[in-house]
Amino acid sequence: MWRIEFSADKFLPILPEQCQTNPGAYGFELALWLAQRLLARGIVTSYPQGEDWGWFIEHTDADETEIQIGCASVASEGDGYANRAIEWSIFVKPYTSLRERLKGVTHAAKVEHVGRAILESLAAEGIPARHAPD
């Protein structure tokens, strides 16, 4: 799994707090932006889907490897409406079947490819981000 962290005001929520998955759990705007930027790099994803902790998109490659890309804020209720940068966390995690796990398959190269595409997309927007080891 890859984790990417950064601070920015670019992805603040558009809709009110009650439209978020939970208070302070922002990330729809980031997930939608990522889906568009990854598509421009040839990485097709799903539309954003909500979870208790934020939002995610999924990518399935030609080999049918599934990768989940989670987007979440590190914020408290209301932080997204203060017009200031908040902390963001993105994770890139493969779905690995039991059979693959038993065979030692990790999909590490595919996860790294997607993670680097995300870092490059953020850098192209002037947003410094870092790969945070797990």
Rank of each mutant, 00 (worst) to 15 (best):
I4K: 06
T60N: 04
E29D: 14
D52A: 08
W33Y: 13
V44I: 13
L38V: 04
L38P: 01
E17M: 06
G78L: 05
S76Y: 01
R37K: 14
K10M: 13
Q49G: 14
V74N: 02
L34K: 05
E17G: 05
E77H: 01
L15D: 15
P13Q: 15
Y47E: 13
F56L: 09
G80M: 01
E51Y: 07
Y81T: 09
S7L: 09
Q20N: 15
W33H: 08
E51M: 12
F6P: 08
Q18P: 09
D63C: 03
W55M: 13
R41W: 01
T60V: 14
N22M: 06
I67T: 11
F28T: 13
A8K: 01
V44R: 09
F56T: 11
L30C: 08
E5T: 10
E29V: 02
L32E: 15
W53T: 04
S76D: 07
Q49L: 13
P23H: 00
A82W: 01
E64Q: 11
A82D: 00
F28N: 12
T45A: 01
I67S: 00
I67D: 01
L39M: 11
G24M: 02
A8R: 03
F28L: 13
E51P: 02
G27W: 05
I14T: 15
W2G: 07
Q20E: 15
L12N: 12
E29Q: 12
F6I: 06
T65S: 02
I67E: 00
G78H: 01
A62Y: 03
E17W: 08
A35D: 09
L32Y: 11
F6V: 05
W33I: 08
A31E: 12
L38R: 04
S76N: 03
W2M: 13
G70R: 07
G70E: 12
E58G: 05
